[in-house]
């Protein structure tokens, strides 16, 4: 489904990704782990098409289609979904309006009729229950005044509404308490499907206890330096990143948000 070959990318002239190779097939769940500053978030942003990042070399294809030629919104319509590490607050645009506009943009792309307000409200209420968000939040501004956990649940709600082909979860577990982690994980597990792939980007392995990956990759210095099965995550949990010859710069600034 997703094929990344020799991907190099930089931000403000500084090279962050230095030759990533990754193949993800439909139905698979991949986890990318790595220390802060290793390029995990950059990879997510590049996949989603953030123009602040420049791809200098390599290719990305989604089901054979060159992703790099598509604008962010076109990638989204082709099925790329990025759950943001830091979801954006947009006062003045209601969640309801935002979600309905997004869903209808997708439907239009697929040649389906737009959903009217009443139909959409019904759907949105159902899914908000699934991620344990009070439907009253639909009337509030996008992520406005949401707690960290509510923002992450809103991201998962969007994934459930938009039904992407590839869902990229960028540090979706950060800032979640154990109950919220359960809700978010259940949401992600509900997304698992034969025709869908999930790419989780995470610093810690605790999320992987709830969402069990098929493959785990270690990203360091802008390259994938080791790949394995689920056991690799457990090994990282136990031994840290040091045994792979890299420093876990816990306190170092992440290169992007």
């Amino acid at each position: 489904m997703l094929s990344i070959k020799n991907l190099h990318a930089s931000v403000e002239g500084k090279e962050i990704l230095k030759g990533i190779n990754l193949e993800i097939k439909a139905g698979e769940v991949h986890a990318i782990m790595g220390p802060n500053g290793s390029g995990k978030s950059t990879l997510s942003q590049v996949l989603a098409g953030n123009e602040a990042f420049e791809v200098t070399e390599g290719e990305i294809t989604l089901n054979g289609e060159n992703l790099l030629e598509l604008e962010t919104e076109e990638r989204a319509r082709e099925g790329i979904f990025l759950a943001f590490q830091y979801p954006v607050e947009i006062p003045g645009v209601s969640n309801l309006q935002f979600l309905r506009t997004a869903v209808n943009a997708m439907r239009q792309h697929k040649g389906q009729d737009e959903m009217n307000a009443a139909e959409f409200m019904k759907l949105a209420k159902e899914i908000s229950k699934q991620v344990d968000l009070d439907p009253a939040f639909l009337k509030r501004g996008v992520n406005e005044g949401f707690s960290g956990g509510e923002k992450k649940r809103n991201e998962i709600m969007q994934a459930l509404l938009l039904q992407p082909k590839l869902a990229i979860l960028d540090e979706t577990d950060s800032g979640l308490d154990i109950d919220a982690l359960k809700v978010v994980s259940d949401g992600v597990n509900a997304l698992r499907a034969e025709d869908r792939a999930i790419l989780m980007v995470t610093h810690y392995q605790r999320l992987l206890n709830h969402i069990v990956p098929d493959y785990v990759h270690v990203l360091a210095g802008g390259k994938i330096i080791k790949s394995g099965g689920r056991e690799l995550a457990l090994e990282l949990e136990e031994r840290g990143y040091g045994w792979l010859g890299i420093k876990d710069e816990e306190t170092a600034d992440s290169s992007v948000n």
Binding site: N50, E73, A76, R77, V88, T101, A102, M106
Partner: peptide, 9 residues
């Protein structure tokens, strides 16, 4: 970016 990443034009 947040809005367009959801497929909104």
């Amino acid at each position: 970016f947040y809005l367009v990443s959801r497929g909104i034009g």
